[in-house]
Amino acid sequence: MATGGRRGAAAAPLLVAVAALLLGAAGHLYPGEVCPGMDIRNNLTRLHELENCSVIEGHLQILLMFKTRPEDFRDLSFPKLIMITDYLLLFRVYGLESLKDLFPNLTVIRGSRLFFNYALVIFEMVHLKELGLYNLMNITRGSVRIEKNNELCYLATIDWSRILDSVEDNYIVLNKDDNEECGDICPGTAKGKTNCPATVINGQFVERCWTHSHCQKVCPTICKSHGCTAEGLCCHSECLGNCSQPDDPTKCVACRNFYLDGRCVETCPPPYYHFQDWRCVNFSFCQDLHHKCKNSRRQGCHQYVIHNNKCIPECPSGYTMNSSNLLCTPCLGPCPKVCHLLEGEKTIDSVTSAQELRGCTVINGSLIINIRGGNNLAAELEANLGLIEEISGYLKIRRSYALVSLSFFRKLRLIRGETLEIGNYSFYALDNQNLRQLWDWSKHNLTITQGKLFFHYNPKLCLSEIHKMEEVSGTKGRQERNDIALKTNGDQASCENELLKFSYIRTSFDKI
């Protein structure tokens, strides 16, 4: 039985969820670079991206490699990797027998973001014989899940209580170790020597080791999670996991709180800001991140802002960003909400898709409305799209047979046209069989910064309504002859009103 693990408890099935942008060198404390989270699957090609990484700022997932063999891993080693800020997950990587050479110096898994409450997941690794993470000293947050690894031993010899604050939620089941077939031998045991430290858990006094050649490092209890030197002297209180010299914040392997210019500090002093819960960055760093993602459509890219001495992905609820200094300031009234469309555009074809934009005031991208039916549609669209004030790209209304009016965009005031449909149009209306009105132009103002209007096959939309939009939106004169079809717009509506004058002759039985 794995020490510190839980057996036999019912657990939810383990679901495996399925960018080499360097964020800056980590400095003297770390020998390499800070790398983003990685999802490495199918083959070993991307694994080489770990070569210079000291910190993975995010998670590391290595999974679904069915053609790899043990010899493929023999020359692979990433000794610079010290810390993973989120979680480490391995799933069905064939041929991998140990992690001792792959990650010989991995010391800390912070667990800032977890995989279903777990910071370390080893699942269905069919050839893994031992973990071998002999320098792993601290899992700051989260638990361990090690399950269905039929060859995995050296679990009962690990004292997880020396690595985690609590072992109650560890789930370590259905491994070879369960069948008591392992016969784990710690260093020196074969020669009758006791080389590794022994600890007591559940009444068992057991030597602690990761492999037959690597003991588990056990520091004096007084050192807590700070770690200790090879001689057993406690590291500085700002260290986490390990250090090369005692009581020196510049000799830590990793930091308990924050890293700044080669030393570990309790908090980031001005003019620095907390970033990702582990390091200090200056304003320029946060500003660069903001600008890199301002026009990016890459998933996970955030326009970072500053709030409460932190550089964070977005302002919290009730705050909006001051564009001059990136500071989050309290909103006066309802907060603006910028919604970034991942692929640059979004099609609204149902109430469900409209709900995804609920509360958005600025759309960074283009909207395509293609709704053919739905219950209580006008009210639903207004509830979900009615706060949109600005669209950076274009607005396209296409084959939306259920629409009679666009009044559900009740606050839309600006279409920038930074991206144009077919390279020309910022407003595009095609084949809307029941569209009769755009907006009530006596109450609604709309500016279209650039781009043209396109109207074709809107049989109940009168040309007068379209011409009014040209005047109000500032697009009059931009359109070419064929942009607004004269014969297919309003051709099934009563669009022309003329005053009919009647004269009559009164007659009676005795007068003409």
Rank of each mutant, 00 (worst) to 15 (best):
N325I: 15
P330L: 13
W210I: 03
D248H: 10
P187Q: 05
S98D: 14
P79K: 03
T199C: 03
V206P: 04
K100M: 12
Q303L: 07
L164Y: 12
N150R: 08
F103R: 09
V126G: 04
C223Y: 01
D159R: 02
G300S: 13
H290R: 04
E49R: 09
Q276M: 10
K80P: 01
G58L: 00
V108A: 11
S284E: 08
C255A: 01
N170S: 05
T45H: 05
D261V: 06
W210E: 02
N295D: 04
S77Y: 12
G58R: 00
C301S: 11
P316M: 10
K176Y: 15
V200Q: 03
Q299W: 10
P246S: 12
T267I: 15
L89H: 02
P316G: 05
L29M: 12
T320R: 10
V108Y: 03
L76A: 11
I146P: 00
P334H: 09
N195D: 14
Y304T: 14
C234S: 01
I122A: 11
Y30I: 05
S98L: 01
S324W: 08
C196W: 01
E130M: 14
A119H: 00
G333E: 04
T45P: 15
Q287I: 11
R256E: 08
G241C: 04
F123G: 01
Y304D: 04
S323T: 14
Y94R: 10
C223P: 00
G183P: 13
I122V: 08
L128H: 01
P269G: 07
L106C: 02
K251V: 09
N325P: 08
C234Y: 02
P220N: 14
C280D: 00
Q276K: 10
N282Q: 04
R297C: 07
H212R: 10
N117T: 03
G58W: 00
R162L: 05
E238I: 02
D72Q: 15
R162Y: 09
F123Y: 15
D101N: 12
S112M: 06
E57N: 07
P270F: 05
N202E: 02
H291T: 01
E238N: 09
C264P: 01
T140S: 09
D178A: 13
T229L: 13
N138G: 08
C215Y: 05
D165S: 10
N150W: 11
Q276H: 14
